[in-house]
Amino acid sequence: MLLPAMAAAQGTVQPGDAAAGKVAFKRCASCHQVGPAARGAFGPQLNGIVGRKAGATADYRYSPAMKQSGIVWTEQKLAAFLKSPSEVVPDNQMRFWGIGDERQIANLVAYLRTQR
């Protein structure tokens, strides 16, 4: 089993628990929606985020930084963004400092992977 620091260095995301990620997502839900009725609101909806190009949903007005980032949201890129949004996409408009807990990040990524 890889330690979180080794996994990050190798560009992998440690396996997460989607059920725990659903619980952790509650702190994201004030801005983001998932599920069949999800839509962009204060933040973009996150259905199908894994594999989607950044700034690509039609129901949200993204910052120029996000639209021009060229990012495709891989699990690794999502984990990095959840850890430090401003390092991954400088000048993005997300009002969030990041998550320091690698396990919580892995759980959130596992949950988001389930949202199509």
Rank of each mutant, 00 (worst) to 15 (best):
L2M: 15
L3M: 11
L3P: 07
P4R: 00
A5Y: 01
A7V: 00
A7Y: 06
A8R: 09
A9I: 03
Q10V: 12
T12W: 12
T12I: 15
V13T: 08
K22G: 14
A24V: 03
F25T: 14
F25G: 15
H32W: 00
Q33R: 00
A41E: 07
A41M: 09
G43N: 05
G48D: 04
I49N: 10
I49F: 07
I49W: 07
G51R: 04
G51A: 00
R52Y: 04
K53Y: 05
T57C: 06
T57I: 10
A58G: 10
D59Y: 00
D59E: 04
P64R: 08
K67A: 15
K67T: 14
Q68F: 03
G70Y: 02
G70T: 03
I71F: 12
I71E: 10
V72L: 09
T74A: 00
Q76T: 14
Q76F: 11
P85K: 01
E87P: 05
E87C: 07
N92T: 08
N92P: 09
N92A: 04
Q93I: 11
R95H: 15
F96V: 01
G98L: 00
G98F: 01
G100H: 02
R103M: 03
Q104N: 12
Y111L: 12
L112K: 07
R113A: 13
Q115V: 03
